[in-house]
């Protein structure tokens, strides 16, 4: 039987761009170019490796996001995923984490899955909560923040490196997994892969297809509200000295640290 793997990928504003908020205090997804969240490339990579070691597997990438989010799907398809699902609806603007998890859970159930693979966090919101929420909503085990993962005989195993300990985890499929940026470099799409991706199917779903009421999503349906977003004043550049050798630079730095009472 085929192993059905669903990878959740997010289309995010480029971190090296000048990211801001809109007037409604939601992430501005227009003024800065978007891309496939780098942390989700690791998820695609691990999904492809797991698929590669299975007898028969199919990898579907799912995103919830604006029209341009197809770019993120195409990138994942060009890396080697088989097909894609794009959840897109005007009523989704401003959806918070619980709302996103509801939408993605429905889309994943509709697609059919044995394994869901997520990144460790999205590079824009950086909450790192979606995988746990998905597991809760889908009612399956969560095997998250893995630096190493494998699937065999209907079991997921992996290593989770925490603050105080490193843990070896195990759960039965179906399950939700998330992988860290320590899980192994993601592959680059090949030219062949990029060409092939153009022909791979991308299914588009809206809230109605998922039987979700518009009031449960979007800014209206959000369970949190941002009241204020203030740009932090840029740090003012202090004194920068050239080390003249003979320990001069070190002396000047020590002098600064002493002035500030650090020594």
């Amino acid at each position: 039987m085929s192993l059905r793997i669903v990878v959740c990928v997010k289309y995010v504003p480029d971190a090296t761009g000048d990211r801001r908020f809109t007037e409604d205090l939601v992430t501005d997804r227009e003024s800065v170019d978007g891309l496939l969240s780098e942390l989700d490339e690791y998820a695609v990579e691990q999904a492809l490796q797991i698929a590669g070691s299975a007898d028969d597997a199919e990898v579907t990438v799912v995103t919830m996001g604006p029209a341009d989010a197809t770019d993120a799907l195409r990138k994942a398809l060009s890396m080697g995923a088989d097909k894609a699902v794009h959840v897109e609806d005007d009523d989704l603007v401003g959806t918070d984490a619980p709302g996103t998890s509801l939408v993605l859970a429905r889309a994943i159930e509709k697609t059919g899955y044995d394994l869901v693979v997520c990144g460790m966090a999205s590079t824009d919101g950086t909450m790192g909560v979606l995988p746990a929420m998905l597991a809760e909503r889908l009612g399956v085990p969560q095997v998250t923040l893995l630096s190493e993962v494998s699937v065999a005989d209907g079991l997921v195993t992996g290593r989770r490196d925490g603050d105080t300990a490193s843990e070896q985890l195990q759960a039965a499929l179906p399950a939700v997994v998330s992988v860290t940026d320590q899980s192994g470099e993601a592959r680059y799409p090949s030219f062949k892969g990029i060409m092939a991706a153009k022909k791979k199917p991308v299914e588009t779903l809206d809230l109605e297809d998922l039987e979700i009421d518009a009031a449960e999503a979007g800014l209206e349906g959000a369970w949190t509200t941002v009241e204020e977003a203030v740009e932090r004043p840029a740090r003012t550049k202090g004194e920068v000295v050239e080390d003249e050798g003979e320990g001069e630079g070190a002396k000047q730095l020590a002098g600064f640290l002493a002035d500030r009472k650090f020594i």
């Binding site: 920068v240 630079g249 070190a250």
Partner: peptide, 8 residues
């Protein structure tokens, strides 16, 4: 750009 004190 961020430093209060820097040594090149």
């Amino acid at each position: 750009e961020l430093v209060d004190f820097g040594v090149v």
